[in-house]
Amino acid sequence: MKSFFRMSYPYILWIALFIVAPMVMILLYAVTRSGNGTITFSFTMENFARFLSDPTFLKVLWTSLRIAFLTTVFCILIGYPAALFIAGLPEKRQTLMILLLTLPMWINMLLKTYAWRGILMNFEDLSSEIRVFIGMVYDFLPYMIIQIHTAIAKLDPNLKTAAYDLGANPWKTFLKVTLPLSVPGIISGITLVFLPAVSSFVIPKLLGGGNYVLIGNLIETYFLVAGDWNFGSAISLIMALIIILSMYLTKKLDTTAKEE
């Protein structure tokens, strides 16, 4: 079987070049001092300190997390019933529904966001916050529905029948059987929604009418306008760390849910 392992060498080389090396670059910039384009090896933590000690930056971070969190919550609230109801359809209809949900995912996100911009212009009274949420929930909802649906569809129908036989009503069956067993679906849905939502900055920019500075915008500003790659790298790294940490926690949650 050793010969099979050798097959992964090209890929290991690839990730060393295109995933590990670039991340090392970011790390290097983040812990060094100025010098645009050339790295001067003077180690410093001041880039991190500068971010973490400034209330304005922390507010940006907080806004990004809050928007991502609320987007995720709305996606679950709207998506869960949808996934559940789809799972209750005859099999052919289920496939059709999933196909219908997948189709718009193929249309360019920027184009759909521009369309929302046009639609929402008809409703002048909506606050920019609501506009942003509509755009964000719209973009991520299909992912959430599909993840939860996959989890529910995998459930053994006998479990439900057994619950009915034991005298549980449909509501109780849902609470005690379907819901707990669909938690892994919700969790993988969260992964697909929360993570990209934290760093998303194009939707808030196009729909929020410029009322939001999110962490993605900050990174863009420091790299593209200020030319301060060291600080930009530090912010990128902080954001990546937060996301990987929350990912780790979700995974932890997932395994405990499974053990129960």
Partner: peptide, 12 residues
């Protein structure tokens, strides 16, 4: 570098 930094803080 300083102006964009100060400006980002105004907007945020």
């Amino acid at each position: 570098a300083k102006q964009p930094d100060l400006w980002a803080k105004v907007m945020a």
